[in-house]
Design a protein around this nucleic acid. Structure first.
Lengths: 196, 196, 196, 196
DNA sequence: CATGAATGAGCCTTCATTCAT
DNA sequence: CATGAATGAAGGCTCATTCAT
C-alpha cells in the first residue's frame, strides 16, 4: 500500500521520538519492542526503518538531543552571571525547572546509559561530564573566593546533582507540591549546604 | 548427567544470587539472559530451575533480601539514639556505608523496580516507603524541636535520600576518594542543609 | 532477510494449515513441534507467526473450520428430505463420504479435543453436540412415526456416530475396499439396526 | 533421605501405573510429564526410575497389560459357546462390560498408539488384530451358516467394534443411563444389524 | 530405595531487521 | 513511504533422564 494520506516525513519522525520517549520511560529500552513503538505511531514495524536507522540509534538520538538542549539552555541560564552565590542559585533553579519539564528525557538519559553501545555511551558521558563541570566550576570558584565551603568539590558536585536530579523519579505535576515550593526547598538545602 | 560431585543446593543458590547481582548491575535485568547467568555459575540454563522458580522471582528475591537487610541494619544503627542531630548523623553515616558496601543491590533495587511485576513492585515500594519514613521522621522531629529548618519535609527527605543514594552510580573503592572523606563531604552538605 | 519473491500471505497460511493437518494427524498435536511444521512449509519457525497467533489457535482453527464445514454440508445433504428412512440414509451416506474425504480433520477433531484450552474446547463441543442432535432428531422422529425402533435414542445416536466415524482410523483409499462397498456395508448395519 | 516408612516396591509400581492411567487418560501421554506423575505418586521424579525403565516403557506396559487381560477375559467369556447368535451376544456383552470397567486403559490403548515407538506399536497392533479376528470369525461363521447377513465382513467387524468401543469416550457411571440399558441398546443395534 | 542436583535437547515465542511489492 | 512476509538469533522455560549422596 502507498503512503497514508497526510503523512509526512518529519512529522512521522517526531511522532516516533515522542512515542519512543513514552515507551522507554515506561518500560525501559530493552523491554520496548519496535512493534510496540510502531503500534503506538500507527505504522507497521518495517516502516519505522524509513525514519530511523536502528533501535540503538533511536535511543542515542533521544538522549543526545536532550544533552545538547541541556547545554544550550544552561548556557542561556547562566549568561552574564558571575557572582558564585547568584550563579549557583541560577544553576539550581534552571536544573530543577528543566528536569521537571523533561523528566522522561532525563530519566532515560541516566537509566538507559547502560543500553547504549560503548561508542555512543562515551559520547553521552562526555557531554554529561561537561555539564557536571559547570557545577564543579561554580563550586570551585566559590570555594576559592571563600564564599562556599565544601568537603571534596567533585563529590559535592555529584551529591548536589544527584539530589536535584532525583525529582525525575517521583515528581508529577499533579501532586501536592507546586513547582515553586519544590525549588525553594531544594534551594535551601543546597545553598545552606555549601555555606562557609 | 546427574548431580556433580560436591554440588550442593545452598551453595549453588548463593552463587546464582551473586552472579545475578553482577550481571543485572552490569547489563540490566532485561539484558541479562539466563544463559548468561548459567554460564557465569557454571551450569546449564535449565539447571537454574533447580534453584529459582523464575527469572522474575530471582529479581524480586535479590531486591527483597536487600530491603529486609536494610531495615534490620538501620534499626541497629539508630538504636538508642534520640537527639535529632545525632540521629540524623547516624542515619547519614549508616546509609552511605551500607550503600557503598552493597551498591549493586541498591542500584538494582531502584533501577529495576520497573522490571518487577506489579505485585512484586508494590511490596518493594512499601518497604522503601517505610525506610523513607524513618528519615522523614527524623527531620520532622528535628523541625518540631527547632533543631532543623527545612522547606517541605517530604521533599527534603527525597532530596537527601537522592543525594546519599547517588554514590551507588559512581563510587568505586578503587578511586581517589576514601570512604571517610566521602562521608564527611556528604555529612557537611546534609547537616548544614537542614540547619535552622 | 525480507519477503521472498513470490511469497503471499494466504497461500502460506493455506500451506501451514495443510502441513498442520498432516503432522497433527501423524504425530499428534503435542508431538508436532512448530519447527517440524515450519520445516514442512519451508519457513523458519518464527515466520509462522506472520500467519498464526499461537500453536493452540492453529489447532482450534483447524478443528473449527472443519466443524463449520461439516454443518454447512450436512445442511445441504439433508435439504428437502423429510421421510425418516430417506433422511437417515442421506445422513449415513453424507457422514461417511465427508469422513472419508476429510479423515484427518475428523480424526484431529476428536483425538485432539483434549489438547484444546477449555474455552476452545467448549466451543467445539457445542458444535459437535449440534451435529449429534441432527442424527438424534432423525431417530426420534422415526421412532415417533413408528418407522424406527431403538433402545435409548441418545445412546443409539452415539453408537451410530461412533460406528460411522470409526472409518477415519483405518480407511485408506488405496485399500481393498472401494467407497461404494464401504457405504453399503455401513448402510445395512445402520438401517437394519434401527428397524422396527 | 532414605525410603519412606511403609513404602514397598510392588505397591509403588502399582501406584505409578494407576497414576499413569489417570494422567494419560486426562492429558495424553505427551502432555503428562514424569514430574506430574511423580507428584501424584508422592515421589521425586528421579525416584520413578527405581520402578520403571522409561516413560515409553511405562506407556507400553499399561497398554500391553490391558491387551493381555482383554484376551484372557474374552476367552473366558466365549468358552463353550458355539452357536453364532449366542456367541455374538456374548461378545457384545463382554466387550461393553469390559470397556466400561476399564475405559481409561481402552481409551489410552487406542488414542496413544501413535505415541508408541514403532516396535512397541507393532506388538500392540498384532494383539489388537487378534482380538478383532475373534469378532470377524464369529461374523464369518454366522454368515456361512446363513444366520447373519452383512456386507463386507472385515468392514462390519471394524464398524461394530468402533460402535461398541465408542462408549469409552462418553460413558460415565454417574450418568442417566444404567449399564443394562446401555447393553440392551447396543445389543439391539448389533443383532438387528447383522440379521439375515 | 529416595532425593536433589545436574545434563542437554528441545519447546513456543519474540525480536530487530530486511526487502519485494 | 508503507506494507507484509521473511530471516536468524535469541529468550525463558520444561523435560526425560542420570547419578552422587
Amino acid at each position: 500500500m502507498a503512503r497514508t494520506a497526510g503523512s509526512s516525513g518529519p512529522k512521522t519522525l517526531a511522532a516516533i521520538h515522542e512515542a519512543g520517549l513514552q515507551l522507554i520511560y515506561a518500560k525501559g529500552y530493552d523491554a520496548m519492542s519496535l512493534r510496540d513503538l510502531a503500534a503506538k505511531v500507527g505504522l507497521q514495524p518495517g516502516s519505522l526503518y524509513n525514519h530511523i536507522t536502528t533501535k540503538q540509534e533511536l535511543l542515542f538520538d533521544l538522549i543526545h538531543n536532550h544533552m545538547i538542549a541541556l547545554h544550550e539552555r544552561i548556557g542561556e541560564a547562566l549568561a552574564g552571571i558571575s557572582e558564585p552565590h547568584t550563579r549557583l542559585e541560577a544553576f539550581v533553579a534552571f536544573h530543577l525547572t528543566y528536569h521537571i519539564e523533561r523528566k522522561r528525557e532525563v530519566f532515560i538519559g541516566s537509566a538507559e546509559l547502560r543500553s547504549l553501545e560503548p561508542k555512543n555511551r562515551k559520547r553521552i558521558i562526555k557531554l554529561r561530564r561537561d555539564y557536571e563541570d559547570i557545577l564543579a566550576g561554580i563550586l570551585e570558584r566559590g570555594v576559592a573566593a571563600k564564599k562556599f565551603k565544601v568537603g571534596d568539590v567533585r563529590v559535592s558536585t555529584y551529591a548536589i546533582l544527584a539530589m536535584l536530579t532525583g525529582i525525575c523519579t517521583w515528581y508529577t505535576p499533579k501532586g501536592r507540591i507546586d513547582q515553586d515550593a519544590l525549588i525553594k526547598t531544594h534551594m535551601r538545602l543546597v545553598m545552606q549546604g555549601v555555606e562557609g
